[in-house]
Computed example of a mutant assay.
Amino acid sequence: MSISDLYDNEFRKRNKDHFAAIVRVAMSDGVISEEEKEFLDRLADRLNISEHDYKRIMKDYESHPINPPVSYDHRLERLFDLARMVAVDKIHEEEEKKILRKFCVALGFHAVNVKYITDKALELVSRGHGLDEFIDGIKNMNQ
């Protein structure tokens, strides 16, 4: 096995685990709404999840490990990626916020602050801010 194959395999595994974690969040209320299903379908496509893996993950999402980011900056990077995906999908505004709030809680943000973090994340993404500006904007949103 070449080094590039090793990285490709590890990248695909990380994408599958990341997708499974997002499915787990979507299932946290026991139901995947139509909007969430459509988002998951598009996300699977973007993460290059095969149809076989997609079906397996949807059926048994709990068998995949959850590897939440440990550092605050890594959580903000994931939030940035998720906020961009949610915003690009043009989901109805309230449904968009609901989905992103679930992701925020799963990333380890305190539930009391999730509404404010979600609103700020979507605002920063809609303004076209890059990662560094996004992180700075979230870190300094109360100032």
Results as ranks from 00 to 15, higher is better:
S4A: 12
L6G: 05
L6M: 08
Y7V: 11
D8P: 00
R12G: 00
H18G: 03
V25H: 01
A26D: 06
A26I: 09
S28T: 06
V31L: 11
V31F: 11
S33H: 06
D41N: 14
D41C: 10
D41M: 12
L43P: 11
D45I: 08
R46K: 14
N48S: 14
H52R: 13
H52Y: 04
D53W: 06
R56Y: 08
I57K: 08
M58F: 14
M58C: 13
M58L: 15
D60Q: 11
D60M: 09
E62S: 09
N67G: 04
P68E: 09
P69A: 12
P69I: 08
V70A: 14
E77R: 13
L79Q: 06
L82P: 03
A83D: 05
A83N: 08
M85D: 14
V86F: 01
D89M: 13
D89T: 05
E94T: 11
E95M: 05
E96S: 15
K97V: 05
L100M: 07
K102A: 03
F103S: 01
C104I: 04
L107E: 15
G108S: 05
A111M: 08
V114R: 00
V114T: 12
V114W: 00
Y116I: 02
A121N: 04
L122I: 13
L122W: 03
L122E: 07
S126H: 15
G128P: 08
H129P: 00
H129G: 01
D132A: 12
D132R: 11
F134E: 02
I135W: 03
K139M: 07
Q143C: 00
Q143K: 12
